[in-house]
Computed example of a mutant assay.
Amino acid sequence: MNEVIETILNHRSLRHFEDKPLTAEQIKTIVTCAQSASTSSFIQAYSIIGVKDKEKKKKLAEIAGNQEYVEKNGHFFIFCADLYRHITIGENEHINVSPSIESTEKFMVALIDASLAAQNAAIAAESMGLGICYIGGIRNNLDEVKKILKTPERVIPLFGLAIGVPTKLTEKKPRLPYDHIYHEDEYEQDKEVYLSQLQNYDNLISSYYEERTGGKRKDRWTEQMAIMLDRKSRMYMKEFIQKNKLDLK
């Protein structure tokens, strides 16, 4: 096992950081690593916004559900699906690219490109001894986030990435069983096998929580998911995306 694999396997979300900003060199390294990620057809349909302004970070923390680590970290990155530059390219080249830009396929490309770039950034940061935490809570109110970041049409802030020097380490959460995630040749549809894998994972997660909380918590993963998915959240997203001239057909 090499250092890269060890870094990846050692991942855990960290939420407590030193009050110490990242250096310009660290920021550039992380962003450059993000840019080295694969990109569909070389389209590079994403942008990264680094937020240093304390007032903006405070507002973003409030939007994300008053998550303190959005405000207090070494640097806060926001990854955006970005097809604004491509519509601009079309205008400059006198080619109508709107039908392609306003398609579900290109919207998916932008989401995938941004996600690949973000994971490169996360691994780079962790390899530098920094801690990271993805923040999906900025999607609680994207209209307000766009105002704060002054993003144009066809740019969708997707999630944040808080990075900093960690002050507190947490235990790694066990992931789903290998055999439940990895299917060979075809999808495993034997319900008995499928449910057995989930039950084994439930037992593992329940024990993890019980040990971590001293017996105060021992809920199952499937229980968590069912309760979470029973609550509707961010149901405005389709309308928001269409309003920003993406994924119209």
Rank of each mutant, 00 (worst) to 15 (best):
V4I: 15
E6G: 07
E6F: 02
T7F: 00
T7C: 06
T7G: 00
H11V: 12
R12I: 11
E18Q: 14
D19I: 10
P21I: 13
A24L: 13
K28H: 07
I30Q: 02
I30F: 00
T32F: 00
S36N: 11
S36D: 12
A37K: 09
S40F: 01
S41L: 00
F42I: 12
I43S: 03
Q44G: 01
A45P: 03
Y46A: 07
Y46R: 09
S47E: 15
S47R: 14
S47Q: 15
I49N: 11
V51W: 06
K54L: 06
K57G: 13
L60D: 06
E68Y: 09
Y69S: 05
G74C: 00
F77D: 07
F77S: 00
F77E: 04
F79H: 06
A81G: 09
A81T: 03
T88Y: 02
I89H: 07
N92M: 13
E93F: 08
I95H: 07
S98W: 05
P99H: 12
E102F: 00
E102R: 01
E105P: 00
F107L: 04
A110V: 01
I112E: 02
L116P: 03
A118W: 04
N120E: 13
N120D: 10
A122T: 15
I123H: 04
A125D: 05
E126M: 02
M128E: 14
I132P: 01
Y134C: 08
Y134M: 10
G136W: 14
I138R: 01
N141F: 04
L142E: 08
D143H: 11
D143L: 03
V145T: 09
V145W: 01
K146A: 02
E153Y: 06
I156F: 00
P157C: 00
P157V: 08
L161W: 01
G164L: 05
V165R: 06
T167I: 12
T167F: 04
K168V: 15
K168S: 14
T170E: 12
L176C: 04
Y178K: 03
D185C: 07
E186H: 08
Y187P: 01
E188C: 06
E188W: 02
D190Y: 04
D190I: 08
L195G: 07
N200A: 05
I205T: 09
S206V: 10
S206A: 14
Y208A: 06
E210G: 04
E210Q: 07
G214N: 11
K216V: 05
K216L: 10
R217W: 11
R220I: 13
W221K: 06
T222I: 06
M228L: 11
L229A: 07
K232I: 07
S233P: 01
S233H: 11
K245I: 01
D247E: 12
D247V: 03
